[in-house]
């Protein structure tokens, strides 16, 4: 910490930030949980690659993969992961992107709520496309 911070007040008080500062406010806790969602995004990549590999190896491997993913431990992991991924999707699409994006229509800036609705539509379409492709 720099001493020259307050040249005219040599005796000032500055409390230290506790390690678990994010437990002190609901909004801080939500922020840390949101950041932790990235761990489950990474887990999803691993899971997806294992699935694609199993499907490519043949019906036997695919069967085994589905059985493995039906074990209680893995189901629980994926339920938790889905909760975090939903937290990520909701915060990203409805709080972050409406704040960060400037979308203009005929020269006028669209209000954040409209961008949020646009994101919702995009999310629904992308999900529908994924479901359609996989279930045929």
């Amino acid at each position: 910490m720099k001493v020259e911070y307050t040249p005219f007040h040599p005796r000032w008080h500055r409390p230290r930030v506790p390690v678990f500062w994010w437990l002190r406010r609901r909004s801080y806790l939500l922020f840390v949980l949101r950041e932790l969602s990235s761990v489950f995004v990474a887990w999803f990549v691993v899971f997806l690659l294992l699935l694609v590999n199993a499907v490519a190896q043949g019906p036997e491997d695919y069967r085994r993969f589905v059985d493995w993913s039906a074990t209680p431990g893995l189901l629980l992991l994926n339920v938790v992961a889905l909760c975090f991924i939903l937290l990520h999707a909701v915060t990203w699409l409805f709080t972050l992107s409406p704040h960060a994006m400037v979308v203009r229509l005929r020269g006028r800036r669209l209000p954040p709520a409209v961008i949020g609705v646009g994101d919702l539509v995009a999310w629904m379409l992308a999900s529908a496309l994924v479901i359609f492709l996989i279930l045929g």
Partner: peptide, 22 residues
């Protein structure tokens, strides 16, 4: 890291968090 609390507490609705992300 876009915690967003700056915008939440701003008494003038400046939205600094939005300014930073933009």
């Amino acid at each position: 890291t876009f915690v967003g609390e700056c915008s939440a507490v701003c008494p003038k609705d400046v939205d600094p968090a939005g300014a930073i992300q933009r």
